[in-house]
Amino acid sequence: MSDFHDQTVSGPQSGPLPELPVSDEDIGSSPLDRGVVWLGKKLSLIFALIVVVSAYEIARRYLFDSPTLWVHETVTFLGASLFVFGGLYAFATDRHVRVVLVYDAVSARIQCMLRVLHHLLGLAFCLMMIYASWFMAKNAVFAPWGDIRLETSGSAWNPPFPAYLKALILVAIITLTLQFTLHLIRDLRQLGRL
C-alpha cells in the first residue's frame, strides 16, 4: 500500500487513514490502462527530443543564419501528439481533473456513484467525439473520390502531419472510449460490493 495510507490524521480521531473501498488491483489495472501507462512513459522521452531539436533550430537560425524548414512543424506535430496521448495517460492513472471539494466530502458509496456518473457522461462525450473525429480523419486521409490523399500543412516543406494528427485523435478517442467502458465496469462491480 502507498505511504499515503500509512500516515496518521491529526485531531480527535488520530490513527491510520481509512482504506479506500477500491483496491489497488482495481484502479488503473486493466491491461489497456497498463499498456497506456507503459507507452506513456516511453513516449515522454520525446519531450527531451523536442527540446534538443528546438535548440538545434535556434542555433541554426541565430548563430549560423541558416534556419531549417522542418523543425517548427515537426516539433509542433510531436508536441500535439503527446498532448493527445496525455489525456489517455491521465485517465489511466486516475489523475484527471476532479472536484475534490465535493468528492472527498461524501461517503465511499457516493464516490463510487459519482465515478459511475462520470464514466457515463464520459462515454456520451466519447461517442460524439468519435462521430466528429471520424469525419475529420476521413477527410484528412481520403480524397473526395476515395483515393488515399493525406492532408498536408501547406507550408514550403508541406508534410502530411495534419492527416497523421487527425488520425491519431480518432485512435485516441476510440481508446478513451474503451478506457471509460472498462472503468465503468470496474466501478459498477465496486458499487455492488458496497
Rank of each mutant, 00 (worst) to 15 (best):
D3P: 03
H5M: 04
Q7W: 11
S10R: 11
G11L: 05
Q13M: 13
L17S: 11
P21F: 08
S23I: 06
D26Q: 15
I27D: 00
S30K: 00
G35K: 02
W38Q: 12
L45M: 14
L49N: 15
I50F: 07
V52Q: 03
S54R: 07
S54D: 11
A55C: 07
A55K: 02
R61D: 04
Y62E: 02
L63F: 14
S66Y: 10
P67H: 10
V71R: 02
V75T: 13
L78Y: 01
S81T: 13
L82Y: 00
L82G: 05
V84N: 04
L88Q: 02
Y89K: 08
Y89T: 09
T93M: 11
R95T: 02
R98D: 03
V99I: 15
V99A: 14
Y103K: 09
A105E: 12
A105C: 07
V106Q: 09
V106K: 03
R109W: 08
C112T: 15
L114I: 11
L120P: 10
G122Q: 01
L123W: 06
F125K: 02
L127S: 09
M128V: 14
I130Y: 04
W134E: 09
N139H: 12
V141E: 03
F142W: 10
W145P: 07
G146S: 10
L150F: 15
P160V: 00
Y164C: 07
L165W: 01
A167M: 13
V171K: 06
I174C: 07
T175M: 15
T181C: 14
L182E: 10
H183W: 00
H183K: 15
D187A: 01
L188Y: 08
R189D: 03
R189F: 02
Q190S: 12
Q190C: 14
L191D: 03
